[in-house]
Amino acid sequence: MTETVLRVRGITKSFGARAVLRGIDLDAHRGDVIAILGGSGSGKSTFLRCLNLLELPDAGTIEIAGAAAPLVHDTQGRARIADPRALNDLRAKTAMVFQNFNLWTHMTVLDNIVAAPVHVHGVPRAEAADRAQALLEKVGMAGFAAHWPRQLSGGQQQRVAIARALATDPDLMLFDEPTSALDPERVREVLDLMRALADEGRTMLIVTHEMAFARDVSTRVVHVRDGVIESMGPPALMFGADASPVFRAFLSH
């Protein structure tokens, strides 16, 4: 029996009159690598951003490694988080890697990596810095600790962003199209790194357009379409002959 790291029930989200998510349930166990695929506008990124509540769902429950931040609704039915502290606790168990890296431009590479451990988790700075150096080595960026983000290429920035995400040893890592903003020749270095993380048992949810990566690395493929999970299963099944016709039609685009 493996530990459930993520438990999502009944997530819905509308932007104005447009229903983007129409009821999503998903579980992830420790070590799962879940590739979330779908066309643009399918709701896959919105779903990912709901998990750490960067987008506030209209309804539903999210539980991450035992933490939850329940929603309450006001008289007009608008959702908000009941307890802001629970919100930050939930977020602190996750880490997110963004399409546009979003490194803090006024901090050095080292300061980017130690910021959350020191200022959110209360780790002593010296200890966090030691760990940051080890992480930089791991992502192939040893020697860049004193650089500023603007001095790095996109692939290098994304690898630093992954080191930043790893710095708090998160229970769940969320990747929001991590290679979509990279030059084609830089995609490989980031995908290789993500594959190494998968191999060491990190629990990862990855919104991506990299089909080969989803097929080769993920433990489960989730196809989101029109705000619901259209089909999901292990990659061997999803990329095999018995896959849902709708998913196969999506793949053949």
């Binding site: 960067l54 930050n88 977020r91 546009n100």
Partner: peptide
Amino acid sequence: PRGQIEAAMAAGMGPFARFRRVIAPQVLH
């Protein structure tokens, strides 16, 4: 940049830490 504020949120920084660590230094500049 909005993305840098989101990165601070995603890391679990509350409003005060976000202001102190990410927003204020950049606004000051």
